[in-house]
C-alpha cells in the first residue's frame, strides 16, 4: 500500500495516456496494467470540436484517478495557469507539475518548478513535481509544499533506463519517508524493476507501454516487474560480493580420493 497525499493506492504503476494506436488499445493497456492513476493533459479545442469530451468520457469509464499534467509549459506562470484550468476541468487538486527548461532533453527548469510548486501548494493543489535527481532541488520542492517527488531516471521518452543509479540511491536514502515516483526514461520492465529494487515507491510510464508492439501485454509485463522489484526491496536484496561463495554446504562433503 502506498499513500500519495491522502490517497492510498495498491498499484505502484502510474500510466500515461498518450501515443497509443487507438482509444481501444489505450483502454486495454490501462486495464492490463491494473493502474489506479492515469495522467492526462489539456490542449486547445477546435471550434465545434468534441474530441476532448470523447476522450474525457473514455478516461472516466476506466475508473482510475486522474493526474493532469502541465506538459509543454516553459514558465512558472504558464504552468500555474494550466494547473488551474486542469482543476476546473478534472475537478482534482492533483497536478503533475512539469516546467520544461530544455527543448532537447526536456529537462525540467527546476528554478521555475520550485516557484510554481510553491504557488500551487499555497492554492491548495497537491503537486507531483517532475524533477531531476538533484537533492537540493528536492529539498526546495518539499519546502515549497510538495509531499511527493517524481525524479526522472532518463530523458522523457528516451527509453534509456536509469542513467545514474548512485543519484537515485542517494535520493532514496535522503528522503526515506517521502513517496518517490520515478517519472520518465523507463524503457523496459527490467528498468522499472531496477528502480523498485532500490526502494522507489512507484513508476510512471507512458511511451514504453504505448510504443510497444502489444501495449496491453507490455503493460501487464511492467505491472509484474514493478511488483517483483517491490517484493525484492521489501525482502532485502543480497549485496554483490567480489568472490564466489559456495551455496552448497562444504561441511560433510564426501572425500573420494
Amino acid at each position: 500500500m502506498l499513500q500519495v497525499y491522502d490517497t492510498e493506492i495498491t498499484s505502484r504503476l502510474l500510466l500515461g495516456t498518450a501515443g497509443y494506436p487507438s482509444p481501444a488499445v489505450l483502454s486495454d493497456a490501462v486495464r492490463a496494467s491494473q493502474t489506479q492513476i492515469v495522467t492526462v493533459s489539456l490542449r486547445r479545442e477546435t471550434a465545434g470540436g468534441k474530441a476532448g469530451g470523447a476522450f474525457f468520457e473514455l478516461i472516466r469509464e476506466l475508473g482510475t484517478k486522474i493526474l493532469p499534467n502541465t506538459a509543454g509549459c516553459h514558465t512558472a506562470k504558464e504552468a500555474v495557469l494550466t494547473a488551474k484550468m486542469a482543476r476546473e476541468v478534472f475537478r482534482t487538486n492533483w497536478i503533475k507539475l512539469e516546467v520544461i527548461g530544455n527543448h532537447d532533453t526536456l529537462q525540467p527548469d527546476v528554478f521555475a518548478l520550485v516557484e510554481a510548486a510553491r504557488i500551487l501548494s499555497n492554492e491548495g493543489f497537491e503537486v507531483f513535481p517532475y524533477t531531476t535527481d538533484d537533492l537540493v532541488v528536492a529539498e526546495r520542492l518539499l519546502e515549497a509544499g510538495c509531499r511527493v517527488l517524481m525524479p526522472w531516471c532518463a530523458p522523457i521518452g528516451s527509453a534509456m533506463g536509469p542513467q545514474n543509479l548512485s543519484a537515485l540511491r542517494s535520493m532514496r536514502a535522503h528522503f526515506p519517508d517521502v513517496p518517490l515516483i520515478v517519472d520518465a526514461g523507463i524503457g523496459r520492465p527490467s528498468h522499472a524493476a531496477t528502480v523498485m529494487e532500490l526502494g522507489f515507491d512507484a513508476v510512471l510510464l507512458n511511451t514504453a507501454v504505448a510504443g510497444a508492439g502489444d501495449p496491453a501485454l507490455m503493460a501487464s509485463g511492467f505491472a509484474r516487474a514493478i511488483e517483483a522489484g517491490r517484493q525484492a526491496f521489501e525482502a532485502g536484496v543480497l549485496e554483490p560480493r567480489d568472490m564466489a561463495v559456495p551455496s552448497t554446504p562444504v561441511i560433510g562433503k564426501a572425500v573420494f580420493s
Binding site: 500515461g16 493533459s41 499534467n69 476546473e88
Partner: peptide, 27 residues
C-alpha cells in the same frame, strides 16, 4: 482563469486573448 460559472458575466474587450482548452491524452 475564467471559471465556467463566470463566463456569462465576463465582458470581453478588443484584442483580448482567449484560450479554450479541453482534456487530451498526456504522459
Amino acid at each position: 482563469l475564467v471559471h465556467a460559472a463566470d463566463r456569462d458575466g465576463w465582458r470581453l474587450r478588443d484584442h483580448d486573448r482567449i484560450e479554450i482548452l479541453s482534456p487530451m491524452k498526456g504522459g
